[in-house]
Amino acid sequence: MGEVEVAFRVELPEDLKEFCSLYGDTLISDFLFVFGAKFMAEKGVWMSDFVREGHSTIPNAVLPDSGGMLHWGHTVEGDKLFLEDRGSGRWTVSAFRRNWHDWYESEETLNDWLAGVFAGRLAVDWMPEWPEVHWFE
Score class of each variant (00 low, 15 high):
1 M>F: 08
1 M>R: 11
2 G>H: 03
2 G>Y: 05
3 E>G: 11
5 E>F: 07
6 V>N: 12
8 F>Y: 04
10 V>L: 09
11 E>P: 12
11 E>C: 14
12 L>E: 00
15 D>W: 00
15 D>P: 05
16 L>Y: 00
17 K>G: 08
18 E>T: 14
19 F>E: 04
20 C>Y: 07
21 S>T: 10
21 S>I: 11
21 S>E: 13
22 L>A: 14
23 Y>F: 14
24 G>K: 06
25 D>C: 06
27 L>C: 11
27 L>M: 04
28 I>A: 12
28 I>H: 10
29 S>M: 11
33 F>A: 15
33 F>R: 15
36 G>D: 06
38 K>V: 14
41 A>Y: 01
42 E>S: 13
42 E>W: 07
42 E>N: 15
42 E>P: 09
42 E>I: 13
43 K>I: 10
48 S>R: 06
48 S>H: 03
49 D>C: 12
49 D>I: 14
50 F>I: 13
52 R>I: 15
52 R>G: 10
55 H>Y: 02
58 I>D: 01
58 I>T: 05
60 N>Y: 15
61 A>W: 05
61 A>P: 12
62 V>C: 08
63 L>C: 13
63 L>Q: 05
64 P>I: 06
64 P>T: 13
65 D>A: 15
66 S>A: 10
70 L>A: 06
70 L>R: 06
72 W>V: 12
72 W>K: 04
73 G>A: 06
74 H>Y: 10
77 E>H: 02
79 D>E: 01
80 K>E: 00
80 K>L: 03
80 K>F: 00
83 L>A: 04
84 E>S: 08
90 R>K: 15
91 W>Q: 03
94 S>W: 00
94 S>V: 05
94 S>H: 01
95 A>G: 03
97 R>E: 01
97 R>C: 06
99 N>A: 03
100 W>S: 05
100 W>D: 03
101 H>D: 01
102 D>V: 00
105 E>I: 05
106 S>L: 05
107 E>N: 12
110 L>A: 08
110 L>Q: 06
112 D>W: 03
113 W>E: 01
114 L>A: 08
114 L>N: 05
114 L>Q: 06
119 A>D: 04
119 A>R: 09
121 R>P: 02
122 L>E: 00
124 V>D: 02
124 V>W: 00
124 V>M: 05
125 D>E: 08
125 D>S: 10
126 W>R: 04
127 M>A: 13
127 M>K: 08
128 P>A: 09
128 P>T: 11
129 E>F: 01
130 W>R: 10
130 W>P: 09
133 V>R: 09
133 V>D: 09
133 V>S: 15
137 E>S: 15
